[in-house]
């Protein structure tokens, strides 16, 4: 089930939380929402979940509009809100049953659904405990379980892994990826590594606007046009090497990182494969190329670059 967000606008007072956002998520895609605090991630997700009514714009979930066919959208969405609100005084299993019944699961099927979801979320040992007796990680699992109970076509997860320990994070990520193969998943996170590990596509928003959209590979290219390599060249005078490196066609900036060990950093112009030229230069001058490290731009850098003014 595809999700199409068209020109979504939402203002709180004078502050524009979401400013004319449009994007599309296809079935079988896991979309990661990245952005600093207050960027508009949660607002957008609340609007898709039908909870928040936007000022203008439309959201289609499988060709049904959240404004006109909210009932249909609600039936097909699994939603984990920010801060994972739960009825804390209820036992886990009663709560999940309550949600299942609300989602319209029939009496015959409800126990199967409960067992499946308790199994997938690893709640077997805790199912009779009251929710307020659970640790944060287990509460998070309950939140995830209630979003999954009716086997929805679309999953909206607002920071699904907060409060989980590293092992649980890995489990939940695997689960999300598994679900994401057949369904449409949107998740938000501050943790860049997480988005990188789970999502097919990343959407970075800042001040209510989309500032980047694409796969991690796309984003790297987009943010950093230059290829950067670090080299260590021995067998020649540092200054000579430096001068020669600067003469290479396509080398935009050459830096000496460490003169004693003759280490250099070379930024190439976009699209030029600088490594080959460096190698040939060394062969020509009989220098020894002992290190050649391509520098990957980290997602953190891209994020920082796109979301700071």
């Amino acid at each position: 089930m595809d999700i199409i967000v068209e020109k979504l606008v939402k203002t709180y007072g004078i502050q524009k939380a979401v400013d004319n956002i449009s994007f599309k998520v296809k079935t079988g895609e896991v979309l990661g929402f990245l952005g600093p605090n207050g960027a508009g991630k949660t607002t957008t997700m609340k609007a898709i979940s039908t909870f928040l009514i936007p000022d203008s714009g439309n959201i289609l979930v499988g060709n049904y509009s959240v404004n006109k066919d909210a009932e249909y959208v609600k039936q097909n969405i699994g939603y984990l809100p920010e801060n994972n609100p739960l009825y804390e005084d209820m036992p886990v299993i009663d709560y999940l049953k309550f949600v299942g019944e609300l989602q319209g699961i029939s009496k015959e099927k409800i126990y199967d659904s409960l067992l499946t979801v308790i199994d997938t979320c690893g709640l077997e040992a805790e199912k009779h405990k009251k929710i307020n007796e659970l640790s944060k990680g287990y509460k998070q699992r309950v939140g995830l379980a209630q979003a999954l109970i009716h086997n929805p076509e679309v999953l909206i997860l607002d920071e699904p892994t907060t409060g989980l320990d590293p092992n649980q994070i890995v489990e939940i990520r695997d689960l999300i990826r598994k679900i994401g193969r057949e369904k449409t998943v949107i998740l938000s996170s501050h943790i860049l590594a997480e988005v990188e590990a789970t999502c097919d596509r990343i959407l970075i928003i800042n001040n209510g606007k989309i500032v980047a959209d694409g796969t991690t590979v796309d984003l790297r290219k987009q943010a950093q046009g230059n290829d950067i390599i670090k080299v260590k060249i021995e067998g020649g005078d540092v200054n000579d090497v430096y001068n020669e490196l600067q003469k290479i066609e396509g080398a935009a900036v050459v830096d000496i990182i460490d003169a004693d060990n003759s280490r250099f950093q070379i930024d190439s112009n976009q699209g030029t494969a600088i490594a080959a030229s460096v190698f040939q230069l060394c062969v020509k001058n009989n220098w020894i190329l002992t290190e050649l490290i391509p520098v990957e731009t980290k997602l953190e850098d891209i994020f920082k670059e796109l979301t700071t003014e």
């Binding site: 979940s49 609600k74 609100p85 949600v99 609300l102 319209g104």
Partner: peptide, 14 residues
Amino acid sequence: RMGTIELLLTKPVS
């Protein structure tokens, strides 16, 4: 206060 209203209203109920 708990925010559970958000959960309730995003289920298929009016």
